[in-house]
Design a binder for these strands. Structure first.
Lengths: 191, 191
DNA sequence: TATCCTTCTTAACTTAAGTCAATGCTCCAT
DNA sequence: ATGGAGCATTGACTTAAGTTAAGAAGGATA
């Protein structure tokens, strides 16, 4: 499991193998059963973040009508970064729930900051990763906005085909910004 | 003009005033006339990024049909971060053009990295800002996806009313993921 | 096995957005 | 001032997605 993390450190830093090991040994890997909530909407602001080693985590919120709106699915090798601790007065805007049995790296912000102090390269790596995430998010956003629900479905088929099998369709529909009925019809339409 | 930058440094770092001054004196502030292109789609990958002190910069790309799709408007105190240098083989996906006369901080990646080496706190600040940007982007995305064109228009009226006056409507429409005709009708519908 | 609950599909209807086309408006340049 | 280009509005029509409601399929549980 920890090889995945080693891969990251090796790729983005020039830390020695010993240092890499030291860092990884400090990390906490936890297992979570399907259905577990990592955070619930309304909880006091999280100081935690996660990295998915195995499984699938769904992020959602309840809209004004009380309906679940799925805003993300996190799967293998994706980081779950909810930065609502930046507005410390606000409670969590989202819920995080395990769609499957999961293995996650669990980190809290304080120890993260400590680590940055100890290994400045680690912070460089994080900065660089954040830039990548942001770039990706911007690109996806730009494409998505301009797409019809049908085009969005085709995109997900292209980019994250695994989700189609791992995730209930009505949740996928809401993630794609459409109704379950629409998704059903689109699937039929394009066979 | 430089006070804005000082504000950032003071807010997010504990650098001494002298250090802050030194950093800011290293920055290049350039003026650009309305209509100037900062980058053109297809250019070789940029090593530059910008920070808007004054004016409005539009980011757009040409879709498969050759139509302009506006993916962002950057105004005062917003950073323009195009991280396509992460995929060094690819050319720029976007064009950046000045909608108005602009004053921008122009930075290039190499000198940025050098500065990080010199002032590690500066990299901390950047990491933290990136996390904020990302969080913001994710939140906006989640809201947007689930909204109708009409709801999106209302959101922009709420959040960035200045854009309504600064920007041609057909560009705004494409930024909101709708046709100019739709935007015109929506405006009429809700007076 | 029978029952219940959730999910998915299908249908009929409504509506808002896309498309195409024509008309006006504004600003700019000559 | 005039003409032209680009932009905004409006209308008629088409279409895809939302809404509501009903039924079918699949899984879990007793």
């Amino acid at each position: 499991m920890k090889e995945i993390l080693m891969k990251y450190l090796a790729k983005y830093t020039t830390l020695t193998e010993a240092e890499q090991q030291a860092i990884i040994n400090d990390l906490i890997i936890e297992g979570f059963k399907k259905g577990t909530y990592l955070i619930k909407q309304g909880d006091s602001p999280t100081k935690k973040c996660f990295f998915v080693l195995k499984g699938c985590v769904r992020q959602y919120y309840l809209d004004d009508d009380g309906k679940e709106v799925t805003s993300n699915f996190y799967t293998e090798e994706q980081a779950i970064l909810l930065f609502n601790y930046e507005e410390p007065d606000q409670s969590s805007n989202y819920s995080l729930t395990c769609q499957e049995d999961c293995a996650l790296v669990v980190a809290d912000v304080e120890s993260e900051l400590k680590m940055y102090k100890q290994y400045t390269e680690l912070e460089s790596m994080t900065r660089s990763m954040m830039e990548n995430y942001l770039a990706q998010a911007q690109n996806e956003y730009a494409k998505f906005i301009r797409s019809s629900p049908e085009a969005r479905y085709k995109m997900i088929v292209q980019n994250r085909p695994d989700l189609l099998k791992r995730v209930p369709q009505h949740q996928l529909a809401s993630y794609l910004g459409m109704t379950p009925e629409s998704l059903s019809r689109i699937k039929k339409r394009i066979q």
